[in-house]
Design a protein around this nucleic acid. Sequence first.
DNA 1: CGGGATGTTGATGGCAGTCAAGCTCGGTGG
DNA 2: CCACCGAGCTTGACTGCCATCAACATCCCG
Lengths: 232, 232
Amino acid sequence: MTLKHRDPDGPFNGLIVPAQDTAELFFLKNIERRQIYPVGGIVIWAGFPNILCAHVVAGNLKMTASTLEGREQIVSLLFAGDFVGQIFTEESRFTVTALVETELSLYDRASFEYFLDTHPAYAHGFLRRISASLGDARARMLTLGQCDAHVRIAAFLIDLLDRVGLPDTAGLDHFEIPFSRGDMADYLGTTIETVSRHLTSLKGIGAIELMKGGRSVAVLDRHLLEEALLQP
Amino acid sequence: MTLKHRDPDGPFNGLIVPAQDTAELFFLKNIERRQIYPVGGIVIWAGFPNILCAHVVAGNLKMTASTLEGREQIVSLLFAGDFVGQIFTEESRFTVTALVETELSLYDRASFEYFLDTHPAYAHGFLRRISASLGDARARMLTLGQCDAHVRIAAFLIDLLDRVGLPDTAGLDHFEIPFSRGDMADYLGTTIETVSRHLTSLKGIGAIELMKGGRSVAVLDRHLLEEALLQP
DNA sequence: CGGGATGTTGATGGCAGTCAAGCTCGGTGG
DNA sequence: CCACCGAGCTTGACTGCCATCAACATCCCG
């Protein structure tokens, strides 16, 4: 897994478990069930009874919604520590799929809700997380509704850089893109081809370098990337 | 106000106060301050200290985010009973503006958070609401990211119909659109002209009728509207 | 009744979606 | 070890939707 030490208040709509070490968490542990999902494994199906939720132990998932014609929108990317699922609804509204081999600690949804009900301090932290996720989701509406493709892509790269970027041997910030062009497109509300073109364009102006068949990015000039956010 | 009896789980991301009549609400009443905002009045400014939140007593507001160039996205429409604001953040991420003359019951944010902290049953209902809002926000990402303008507009009309539609004297479902074309465009991530064109087109195929300078809509054939959701 | 705000309609251009062909890389097997 | 193969990525050509600019229509309010 590449994406480990993420900013819990970042824009990926995740929910980190508050670090606590009390009897509360002991109870939570009591109702969990560890499970490993393979790449492409589906944890939750939209439209089916909403019976479970989970926390990500290790790995990486996407939460998606689909149109009737099969166009897919990634509404949230989930990383280690994030909460998985939707509470208080009888039917799942979104599908959750593992992007890499992923270990989850699963809960029965009803039990998790009972746990929230009986552990106010934990519920408080949970509310905090979900409020942050709501803010992130709304911020993404701005991107999806009002920003050009090249802005979406530059902003996405900056987010990734802040999250998983590390200086390489040459002192450049660089990172592996942990998902395919198709996933990027579905996240950004555009197409594979458009993502590819704009990445190439950013490479053309010297902002980034692409390696390993496009799966690895080195940021040559962050300032240039940030200028791309100001659509002319 | 036209939009009164809304579905609390509808797609507008609002938060209804759970109907309770306990000592809890007595305390909440204790910290509220009633205030009336005129049309266009700004309740919360994005980027400024996040000092207050509120419930809508009567009226109608929009919560918006803006790009650096001034393009605006409405991320949530708020109606009577909805919660207004963003808890647990020191700086407001979104602007809240009254679309019509609106009465709010305002709280100091810190006091409201303390109230949540000390009233678990209320906090539980609040978490329920905010979870529903998060689901709604994510569903809107699908629309903004993947759907054509005519689908967005047809879906929006159907939402409005379900929310505020009433049979008229001729037995037709009809309603007043409670906001301008500009607001519709900002909500749907498109432009005034595109909204107008697609409404005209829906009128052309006999799905709707427009009156009062476009401010009032009668749905002649809901089935035709729903067919428009299947983009060909 | 006049003027400003709001909504509609028309003309045009550009961005991005679609279809299609070629490229790259990693993996596999001979 | 190398040739092949296929999935994923890039690039090109074309098209169409929608944003933009502009003119006109309509409504509302004093």
